[in-house]
Design a protein around this nucleic acid. Structure first.
Length: 111
DNA sequence: CAACTGACGATAG
DNA sequence: CCTATCGCCAGTT
């Protein structure tokens, strides 16, 4: 069962997020080559997080918040991130100044 | 086959 | 501040 090219790229980008850093859905999509495909990233996380052993917890929304609802994964994701050193503000926001992943260089998808 | 569904995000009003 | 509307598209029903 072959994955689509974009799917493969998204998986590669998510794998590249280092421990202790986070990235947004939209930015993952942009790095994978389509800045408007944030929803694809959501879909891919659903389908492949477990299957591919992805560091899914490192993908948060553009506000630096966990998108999962409380009682539906929020606590689990937060604990995983805190365990890697990511800190949350009093109202549950992650400071992008400190924790947003900034790739050294853009991904080269054509070579 | 058509319709619906997402852990999103940019934009317009 | 808010709500509404798209773009995106594989997988599921």
């Amino acid at each position: 069962m072959g994955k689509h090219v974009f799917t493969e790229r998204v998986i590669e980008v998510i794998r590249a997020i280092p421990e202790g850093k986070v990235c947004s859905y939209g930015k993952v999509a942009a790095l994978a080559g389509n800045s408007r495909a944030a929803r694809q990233v959501v879909r891919i996380l659903h389908i492949y997080s477990q299957k591919e052993g992805l560091p899914w917890q490192r993908v948060v929304n553009r506000e630096g918040r966990i998108s999962l609802k409380k009682g539906q994964g929020y606590e689990r994701q937060r604990k995983l991130l805190e365990r890697e050193g990511v800190e949350f503000s009093f109202d549950g926001q992650i400071g992008f100044e400190d924790y947003l992943w900034m790739p050294e260089s853009a991904f080269n998808w054509d070579e």
